[in-house]
Write a protein that binds this DNA or RNA. Structure first.
Lengths: 220, 220
DNA sequence: ATGAAAATTTAGGTTTGTCTAAAAAAAAGT
DNA sequence: ACTTTTTTTTAGACAAACCTAAATTTTCAT
């Protein structure tokens, strides 16, 4: 199925908007996301509906069909792999890559993207911590963030570490932090970026910003 | 100056068509190159002329203005750098990359292309032997091809070597082949790919396909 | 439940880049 | 030089993706 650059962007927007639990996505939400007018969105929804990539009932919002979802996930896969490339290989900062990846995600070539994936060592996450879908659009992992960037009072679970030196692992063990532990950030100390965290609803400890940067959290 | 994807392709086509010594490029030549009808080309030429990237007099063909040429060379720079990336990093064959590079060449980001250039080690040539223009659109070198792929009876000059081991250099010295030597391929032996070559219009020798692959020729 | 507000769709129009058919200009042959 | 052929341009249309303005449907508040 061939979709234009623009059609692909609509599918991607609908996918992202329905990620937040929403089953049906509204016309206005799409027009906001894409910076177009609601009237333009109505036109496009009719077209995408004919191509059977969305379920659309007038005045009632849209959802992706299985084939639409698959296409959306392929675009997201491409976007996130290119972001990894830009950050890992071309030394961009993680906050500079979005715009360029928005363009690169529309390059058409399956072989290209599989080769890129391989070249990058099959990364499971993009530089923002978002998981990268595989060729079949499957995405097991959840988004993760360094503990240092987790929001105050948000409950999360330890899902990985950036640093794995014995010294660091010993420290974590002593502190009672392990993969799977529930963590809640109780306070952030402005002065040195250190955090007061609650572990498994039992114990409160203080960790330095250096430690917090190396613990990956899946927020819930 | 912002040009659309399509406008960029017109400039590139005009550049390539005027490479063969042609001062003025014809409407039909452009329509052939871009697979459009001459009528469409006429429309576009009017538009590009208004943007002052081409010199256009009705019924008399077109040429690029300095600013148009600069844009064309930037696109060619991008195209060739991406080709190097695809071949060197993603292990594509040199004959598989053109179509993908046709898409990648339109990605907008100067920073991206400078970072890519650096990442690739500032390559002077693309995988087809064509020179890569610098940021200012300057391109000193000429196209080069391995001697093994040079056309029969074509006159050329040795401009480089792929292999530089002492043994190979000694061999070349003995054979009378040096950087700058004039070489003409007199015959190709099908059986093993070896070549009969005329050096400096004086001496005829036989070189193996292995040797021929490692000598770079600028055809004239 | 009904009238106002908000959301959405339709109607009609624009721009970009394409097309076909017809007209005009240039080139080529005799 | 003058006709024929080729090349190029103009005229008028179309599809994609957008817009504004107006109409319609849904939702929300009283």
């Amino acid at each position: 199925m061939f979709l234009s650059f623009t059609e692909e962007n609509y599918l991607k927007a609908i996918y992202h908007l329905s990620e937040d639990g929403k089953i049906d996505v509204s016309t206005n939400a799409i027009s906001d996301a894409l910076n177009t007018k609601p009237a333009s969105v109505s036109d496009m929804l009719k077209k995408l509906s004919q191509k059977e990539v969305i379920n659309y009932i007038k005045y009632q919002g849209v959802s992706l069909t299985p084939s639409g979802k698959k296409i959306a996930l392929q675009i997201i896969r491409k976007h996130r792999l290119w972001e990894v490339f830009l950050v890992e290989k071309l030394k961009f900062n993680w906050d500079e890559v979005h715009e360029i990846a928005e363009q690169l995600e529309h390059i058409q070539s399956n072989l290209l993207i599989e080769r890129l994936d391989e070249f990058l060592g099959f990364p499971p996450f993009d530089p923002h911590g978002d998981p990268i879908p595989n060729e079949r659009g499957e995405m097991k992992a959840k988004k993760h963030t360094p503990l240092s960037e987790t929001d105050l009072h948000n409950q999360g679970k330890v899902i990985g570490l950036k640093e794995t030196s014995p010294l660091f692992l010993q420290y974590l063990d002593k502190a009672g932090i392990y993969i799977g532990a529930k963590i809640k950030v109780m306070d952030k100390i402005e002065f040195d970026g250190s955090l007061e965290i609650l572990i498994d609803n039992k114990k409160t400890i203080l960790v330095s910003s250096e430690v917090a940067k190396n613990i990956l959290i899946a927020e819930s």
